[in-house]
Simulated scan of single mutants.
Amino acid sequence: MKLHIKNETSRLRAVVLGTAKSNGPIPTLEEAYDPKSQEHIKAGTYPIEEEMVKEIESVAAVLKKYDVEVYRPKIIEDYNQIFTRDIAFVIDDKFIKSNILPDRDQEIDAIEHVVEQIAPSKIITLPEDAHIEGGDVMPMGDYIFVGTYKGKDYKDFITARTNLKAVEALEKEFPDKKVISFSLKKSNTIARDNALHLDCCFQPVGKNKAIIYKEGFLIEEEYKWLVNFFGKENIYEITQDEMYHMNSNIFSISEDVVISEKGFTRLNTWLREQGITVEEVPYAEISKQEGLLRCSTLPLIRD
């Protein structure tokens, strides 16, 4: 397989889509990885497997409609395998394995049938102390945007998934690219104050547009840099409530087609105003785990 990912919006040809089958029992509060999951565990509204399977299969149907080659993880009994974006990511023709939370190590093994189709020289394993997850990494042509948390209290945040050592490792691995890091706001306990990954508060869409949540950025100058990069007129600002429901976590099949949650009325209207076809799917149950459409997909090949 010849990997090819230069950006977030070129025509998608191959992707690994997560699975909600055999998702396991509702986790305890101690087992939850993020404050939104904790919120729903406490409230008794944590999503049930049957509903999540329906949601993720609706995405598979849209991808099939657009002739995208879809790979799926092998099922691990009683194990959450929805968010494939976390476990690895592709930049150019390289497959970079993430260093994720130890409890999730088995997830990469479940896509071994995909990894073994990639030339070993193109598979990159970062140093063990370089913590990184794919939701924080966005290839943008000559740039790589990376969400991170640089505070000395990094270890205190289960929601801090990508550290400075990972940013430095990407700089070494891709010396011809400009690696730009963005410090994100983190909270272990309040979902509305937590930007789990960069794609929870920002995402490029279309030809030159971007969805952004200003308050997800710890440093205002870094938010302003992004606004300048795209141009203020091309930025769609979302509210805290929209961020909480994961409005920036849609997924592009091409510059002209996106998959979005059917309840994102304001966003979907704006996307259509930009001339973008919006394929609406139900995804509100999966979003209760603080992840949405981009989180569930690991693109391998784009034109």
Rank of each mutant, 00 (worst) to 15 (best):
H4W: 08
K6I: 11
K6S: 14
K6F: 09
E8C: 06
V15G: 07
V15W: 10
V15K: 04
G18K: 04
T19I: 06
K21L: 11
G24S: 00
G24T: 04
T28P: 01
E30A: 13
A32N: 07
D34K: 02
I41G: 01
A43E: 07
G44A: 05
T45L: 03
K54W: 02
K54V: 13
E55K: 00
E57D: 15
A61N: 12
L63H: 11
K64P: 02
K65C: 12
K65W: 03
Y79F: 14
F83R: 01
A88N: 09
F89R: 02
F89T: 11
F89K: 00
V90C: 08
N99V: 03
L101A: 14
P102H: 02
D105M: 09
A110Y: 03
I111Y: 03
E112T: 12
V114W: 08
E116A: 07
S121V: 12
K122I: 05
I124V: 15
I124A: 00
T125P: 02
V137N: 02
F145A: 00
V146E: 01
G147S: 02
K152W: 07
Y154L: 14
F157R: 01
T159C: 14
R161M: 07
R161G: 08
R161I: 09
K165H: 14
V167R: 00
L170Q: 01
K172Q: 14
K172A: 13
F174H: 00
P175M: 01
K178W: 06
I180A: 06
K185W: 02
S187R: 02
I190W: 05
N194H: 05
A195G: 08
C200Q: 06
C201M: 13
Q203V: 08
K209N: 13
I211G: 07
K214L: 10
E215L: 10
E221P: 08
E221H: 12
E221D: 15
E222K: 06
L226I: 06
N234W: 12
Y236I: 13
Q240D: 12
Y244I: 07
H245G: 03
H245T: 15
V258D: 04
I259Q: 02
S260L: 04
S260R: 03
G263S: 13
F264R: 07
T265W: 08
W270H: 08
L271E: 10
R272G: 05
E273W: 06
G275I: 10
Y283V: 00
K288H: 07
Q289T: 14
E290Q: 15
L292M: 14
L293F: 10
R294W: 01
C295S: 05
C295Q: 04
T297M: 15
L298Q: 04
P299E: 09
L300Q: 05
L300D: 03
I301E: 13
R302I: 04
D303L: 08
